[in-house]
Amino acid sequence: MEKKGKIRTGIFGGSFNPPHIGHLAIANYICEFEKLDEVWFMVSPHNPFKNESELMSDELRLKLMQLAIDEYPKFKVSDIEFYLPRPSYSINTLQKLKESYPDRLFTLIIGADNWQVFNKWKDADKIIDSFEIFVYPRGGYEIDELNLPKNVKITNSPIIEISSTFIRESFIEGKDLRFFLPEKVYTELKKHGINKTLFY
């Protein structure tokens, strides 16, 4: 895999429904400690493993992600998957990025939970052969590091057990979780009205 002179760019995909401090902390750690130049948050319009009706609108989730990263220069937001065939598959996204940005070396960032089912991903072997993969730890998901493919690395990023599902359900129950979200994200959600209608 050619690395010399390329801009090392991590791809952190997800529905970000909504984006929270866990997403940002993990990406921040990987960017700073795994020597990536940037991390791009790839907002997905529809995950093949999720019901599309669970998602807030594409436009709102994209806006929330842009608000979340604020002015941290190493974070970017991408909406490229909005313009690719649906459902969104990582292999299609990564190949499109590689074609569109030949000056960059792309690294896929996923959680240990996703790594355990990675063999179910579309063209999983092709992803492993063509791209570096960073796996961040998740509680309850053990990985045998001795038998990992050469392009796959387990990061030492902290385990942060916060989920977007927990945040949505807690807000619907009337809980105030403002410190689980970047301030600008919380403010924008309040503007739209944090309730079941917004999230579903």
Rank of each mutant, 00 (worst) to 15 (best):
H192A: 11
L181D: 01
E142W: 09
G174E: 10
R178M: 12
P149W: 06
P158L: 09
S130P: 02
N28H: 14
L24Y: 05
I128A: 01
G13T: 05
H20G: 01
E59S: 13
Q95M: 13
I167H: 01
F131Q: 06
K6C: 07
D125L: 10
P149H: 08
Q66I: 11
S90A: 15
P158V: 02
D113T: 13
F33W: 06
G140R: 11
P48L: 10
I162H: 01
T107A: 03
I109N: 00
E34K: 10
F199C: 06
I21N: 10
G174F: 08
E2W: 11
A25R: 12
R138I: 10
K122M: 13
Y141D: 02
G14M: 07
E52A: 14
W115N: 02
E81R: 08
I172A: 04
S44Q: 07
I11N: 01
I127H: 01
I194C: 05
P85W: 12
L24N: 01
Q66E: 15
I26H: 04
A124N: 12
V135K: 00
I160K: 09
N114S: 13
N156E: 12
M1I: 10
P102S: 13
T9Q: 05
I160Y: 09
T165Q: 09
R168F: 08
K74M: 11
